[in-house]
């Protein structure tokens, strides 16, 4: 028993080490050619400023009719951009399948999905350090009210954020699993995902500001669990219990679906060599 526990602990330690090493490789690959990689975030900073501008422009009366204030939306946008790499998990796996480089990954003693997840983690860590934290600090200094709506909201947010990441990753793996197995071009998979995410996730324009019926439907979809849920909890734009319950539902369902898709299509996925 002791041996077994030791063995499991050791396996976990090895898994974490592999994850850390892979994440570090990804982060340092991006930052390896000087400070140019910061440009991507600089551009996102401009988008943040533009969005906050538009919330102010809409005016208190219009926003009030949607049950929001400019301050809430400002915090929502800042957090959405600061946590962008977590809320919008992108593995690039579809391209790895397409160009055949995924074959090399099968030769590593590390699960395929874990490898891509570790890379996402590396990018998210780099994004958090180089962009997220400075953005939050800068926004606070510029007068954006970033405190959570309540203490309990912060706890719910802490619970919701990992669930959002898990939902995003499951959604990513499932879409790519289906797309690749059916031989879709990676850009097709990418286009479908980006279009759906852009409109329905609430990462860019909060769902509360969309027409009521659209907002209601979108809030029930997994894209909202992936991005809008933790942001709505933090800023008080949604009910934490309902949102977290929905996230739990989607995370569980999507991971089960992902496992089924990958098992069912394993042969196709492995044989897909980009040719």
């Amino acid at each position: 028993m002791i041996t077994s526990n030791h063995s499991k602990t050791w396996q976990l330690i090895r898994f974490l080490r592999k994850t850390r090493a892979t994440a570090a490789m990804e982060a340092t690959s991006i930052s390896g050619e000087g400070a140019l990689f910061l440009v991507r975030w600089l551009l996102r900073l401009l988008r943040t400023a533009a969005l906050i501008g538009i919330w102010n422009q809409l005016g208190a009366q219009k926003l009030g009719s949607a049950g929001a204030t400019a301050a809430q939306l400002g915090a929502y946008t800042v957090l959405s951009e600061a946590l962008g790499d977590v809320l919008r998990m992108r593995t690039g796996m579809e391209f790895a399948f397409f160009n055949g480089s995924v074959a090399l990954r099968f030769l590593r003693p590390f699960g395929i999905l874990q490898q891509f997840a570790a890379e996402c983690l590396g990018r998210a860590a780099l994004g958090g350090i180089c962009f997220g934290l400075p953005l939050i600090a800068g926004a606070a200094l510029c007068g954006v009210h970033l405190a959570p709506v309540s203490g309990s909201a912060l706890i719910w947010f802490a619970l919701s954020l990992p669930l959002a990441a898990a939902t995003g990753l499951a959604l990513e793996y499932m879409l790519i699993g289906v797309g690749t197995a059916y031989g879709f071009h990676p850009y097709t998979v990418n286009n479908v995902r980006e279009a759906a995410f852009g409109v329905l996730s609430g990462a860019f324009i909060p769902l509360a500001l969309l027409p009521t019926t659209v907002a209601k439907v979108a809030s029930l979809l997994p894209f909202a669990s992936q991005a809008a849920a933790p942001l709505e909890i933090y800023t008080g734009l949604g009910d934490p219990r309902t949102l977290v319950a929905l996230q739990l539902f989607w995370t569980t369902t999507l991971w089960i679906a992902t496992a089924v898709v990958w098992r069912w299509n394993r042969e196709k996925l492995v044989l897909y060599d980009g040719g």
Binding site: Y187, N191, A195, P211
Partner: peptide, 29 residues
């Protein structure tokens, strides 16, 4: 057709948020 439809959706999605915002608030600024 998959390409054409997804590219078109992508292009539509890029403006969809703002269309909905303008619809909800009967114009902006």
């Amino acid at each position: 057709w998959i390409w054409a439809i997804t590219d078109t959706i992508m292009n539509a999605a890029a403006v969809a948020g703002m269309v909905m915002l303008a619809t909800r608030f009967h114009g902006i600024g």
